[in-house]
Design a binder for these strands. Structure first.
Length: 758
DNA sequence: GAGTTTGAAACT
DNA sequence: CAGTTTCAAACTC
């Protein structure tokens, strides 16, 4: 089954498919098209980790053997032991000069073919800070991981230690083949194998602000479908994990780890997720920087965080055999052997990239399913509750890094929980590892879990933030595109994903989240304000009347009746999507976009058609989006233009109201804070003695004084020769006086405290 | 909360 | 493409 069909690839939204500034990657090779692999086919997933300034190269060539393999760093002599992994046919090398990890899963047959074709098995070497992720291929089509070769001929890998200054690099996520890919200057992608390959690309340029743009290129090479998994011919996987690090701060630690037990079958989160941003903005790249703090320190994790917008690209591939294990051996046989490269510095890793697969395995698979998937997790959705379930995920949660120790380099790939990156405080792109995300809310589109080519929507128009997931019970076939948010919601057992833990995003502040306006709404608005629940009654939430559906989201906590906008009705939903797209290919695209070139103002893509509202009420989509009506609007009596006095008045009123609200909120907050502070200071005194204030004053001193008073009364009675009965009475009376004084003092103190608190 | 108004979406 | 109907959100009371 196709995880992502070629059609899908070709139809991916421009935001995703923007290939400018990326290398020209051969998206398909002769004979590749039409190749349909069985769901059980395994695909090799190469991963590249590249640290531009890194000095180490690690090269792994993996065979399909499951035997434990121990590799020795050719440079540093560091050995890497893999357990349950495919046999390493080539030494695991770490090049101090490049600090690169090269993982090459070599299919003997494939490698032979490659050699014969003049493309020897490639040992990926440093190629600047670039990572191209080519992941999703047509069903049956192998995924080709391609490594960019800067300024080099195809098949010619750069020499290790190439430390030349790199041009601004872009992080590129390539998903799906696309014929119109634009070549990237100075970067060439060489197909590793002559076998049928399909390259899907999702490219996004990193924000210009990033001093060191990163380009991630992952080319997945898969054997031809003819090769059965049982065949001894292993696929060749060559990949690099490119870690972006600041030029002055080369990454020093590479951590590779796998979940101890990835029982994918038990993970309901099986899905193919593509979560492009809803925003029209281009796919954002997750930049990873080396820790800025310790230049001398040599431990920098190699992050393979690829994000689209505010999303992190998760590439997982399940295999029957642990594909790659670096560093410590793992006793458990894992279906998925993701290699996670985490962000540097915080040791918070967010990216898991499964490297090894069996021959004919599809490139991206969801644990527990035969789907290979790429998941892009939005920042907002990343807050997801999804966590690894079962034993397989335990390791992930613990994020135990596998460390490959070398004299010069430590490699660690901690597996992190599928949590997410939520709100991340913006951070300068130039500092430290970064995840560039956009706050565009998740536009998500649900696709059928079953192969429905005939009704397959035009993915070009799918709302960003789309997540592909296998339908429940859908087995190996079909996929569904579901909202990432919804995925996290419905995904009781978390799946292994490349996502930053909440702690990472929150505490480390490594991530930078670019907040882009969504349909006229500020990032803050889009992120802080949840979508309003719909109230659809007749549309079944399968028409654009429904805001949820229109935004590509599942209905969640809505008040709708007879809702079909959910996974249970994915077939109907897909049909509805198809219908909408047939009617309007732009149906799921943001209505608010940039105006004409050169115009900075946003504008409605279609313009409004208001007649009675004067375009000054929320009936008007332009006004609702807080934008001016434009020439394309067909409104009558429009007052929503710059000089409109009515509009200005409304704006002033709105601003004033907003200011008042803010002031009130601030006042309440301040008052509450002050009260809390007072309580904090006074509570201990009052509450001590279990809140029974009088006893608070029965201190040792009070007791002693009381006793002295009683003794004094006793002496007085003795001196006056009072009878015993009278003496006892005098003592008791004195005791009563003492108690009264104590109580009186306590009551006075309590009233004082109360007055203070008020 | 019920009813009305409104304009986009859907339909013809 | 225009006119009409349907629909759900926005709005009013």
């Amino acid at each position: 089954m196709d995880v992502v069909s070629p059609e899908l690839n070709s139809l991916l939204p421009d935001e995703i498919m923007d290939t400018e500034d990326i290398e020209d990657v051969p998206h398909s090779q002769p004979g590749t098209t039409g190749v349909h692999s069985e769901p059980s086919d395994d695909a090799s997933v190469p991963m590249e980790t590249d640290t531009p300034m890194a000095s180490e190269n690690v090269s792994l060539c993996l065979a399909t053997s499951t035997a434990t393999t121990k590799t020795t760093d050719s440079v540093t002599g560091t050995s890497v032991t893999t357990s349950g992994l495919q046999k390493l046919t080539t030494p695991f090398t770490i090049s101090p000069a490049n600090r690169q990890i090269i993982l090459n899963k070599v299919a003997s047959q494939a490698s032979e073919a490659a050699k014969s074709a003049g493309n020897p098995p490639q040992v990926i070497k440093q190629d600047g800070q670039k990572l191209l992720v080519t992941a999703i291929g047509k069903s049956g089509q192998p995924i080709v991981l391609q490594l960019p070769h800067t300024g080099s001929k195809p098949g010619v890998s750069q020499t290790a230690g190439d430390t030349k200054s790199q041009a601004p690099q872009f992080k590129v996520v390539t998903i799906g083949g696309r014929s119109d890919l634009k070549p990237v200057v100075g970067n060439q992608v060489t197909t590793l194998q002559t076998q049928q390959l399909k390259t899907v690309q999702i490219a996004k340029k990193t924000p210009a602000s990033s001093a060191a743009p990163i380009k991630f290129i992952i080319t997945k090479t898969v054997n031809s479908k003819g090769i059965s998994p049982q065949t001894s011919v292993p696929p060749v996987i060559t990949g690099r994990v490119l870690t972006q690090s600041s030029p002055v701060m080369p990454p020093r630690t590479i951590t590779l780890s796998e979940p101890h037990n990835t029982n994918l079958q038990s993970i309901p989160g099986k899905k193919i997720a593509i979560s492009p941003l809803k925003t029209p903005s281009k796919v954002t790249v997750v930049s990873v920087a080396s820790p800025t703090s310790s230049a001398s320190q040599k431990s920098v994790a190699l992050p393979v965080n690829v994000a689209l917008g505010q999303q992190i690209l998760t590439v997982q591939q399940s295999t029957s055999v642990s594909p790659v294990k670096v560093a410590t051996s793992q006793s458990t046989t894992q279906n998925i052997k993701p290699v996670a490269v985490g962000g540097v510095g915080g040791s918070q890793f967010k990216t898991i990239i499964p490297l090894a697969t069996q021959p004919n395995v599809q490139q991206i698979q969801v644990p527990g399913s035969r789907f290979h998937y790429v998941r892009l997790v939005t920042a907002t959705t990343a807050s997801s509750t999804g966590q690894p379930s079962g034993p397989s995920t335990s390791s992930i949660q613990t994020a135990k890094p596998m460390v490959v120790s070398t004299a010069a380099v430590r490699m660690s790939v901690p597996v992190v929980p599928a949590q997410t990156m939520k709100q991340v405080a913006p951070k300068p792109l130039t500092s430290g590892p970064q995840v560039v995300t956009t706050t565009q809310t998740q536009q998500r589109l649900i696709m059928p879990a079953t192969p429905l080519p005939q009704i397959q929507p035009n993915f070009t128009n799918l709302p960003p933030g789309t997540v592909l997931t296998p339908a429940p019970g859908g087995g190996n076939v079909g996929y569904a595109v579901v909202p990432a948010q919804y995925v996290t919601q419905i995904q009781q057992p978390p799946f292994v994903t490349l996502a930053s833990s909440s702690s990472f995003s929150a505490s480390t502040g490594i991530q930078t989240q670019a907040r882009l306006p969504l349909n006229g709404l500020s990032a803050a608005e889009t992120t802080s304000r949840p979508r309003k629940p719909c109230n659809c009654t007749k549309s079944q939430c399968l028409k654009l009347y429904c805001d949820c559906f229109a935004n590509g989201e599942f209905c969640n906590n809505c008040n709708c009746n007879n809702c079909f906008n959910n996974l249970e009705h994915e077939t109907e939903r897909l049909k509805a999507i198809k219908t909408c797209l047939d009617r309007n290919p732009e149906a799921f695209k943001p209505k608010i976009g940039k105006g004409k070139e050169g115009e900075s103002d946003r504008r409605h893509s279609k313009g409004c058609n208001c007649k009675r509202s004067g375009c000054l009420k929320n009936y008007c989509e332009c006004y609702e989006a807080k934008i001016m009506c434009s020439s394309i609007c067909k409104c009558i009596g429009c007052k929503n233009f710059e000089e409109s006095p009515e509009r200005k008045t409304l704006m002033h009123l709105a601003d004033a109201a907003e200011v008042r609200v803010q002031q009130q909120t601030a006042a309440k907050t301040k008052l509450s804070s002050q009260i809390s502070d007072l309580l904090m200071r006074t509570t201990p005194v009052i509450s001590s003695g279990s809140g029974r204030l009088p006893y608070t004053f029965v201190t040792k001193e009070v007791l002693e004084a009381t006793c002295e008073c009683l003794l004094e009364q006793a002496k007085k009675a003795e001196q006056t020769h009072q009878p015993q009965v009278e003496a006892e009475r005098m003592i008791l009376e004195e005791f009563g006086h003492c108690l009264m004084r104590i109580i009186s003092s306590a009551g006075k103190a309590k009233s004082d405290c109360a007055s203070i608190n008020c």
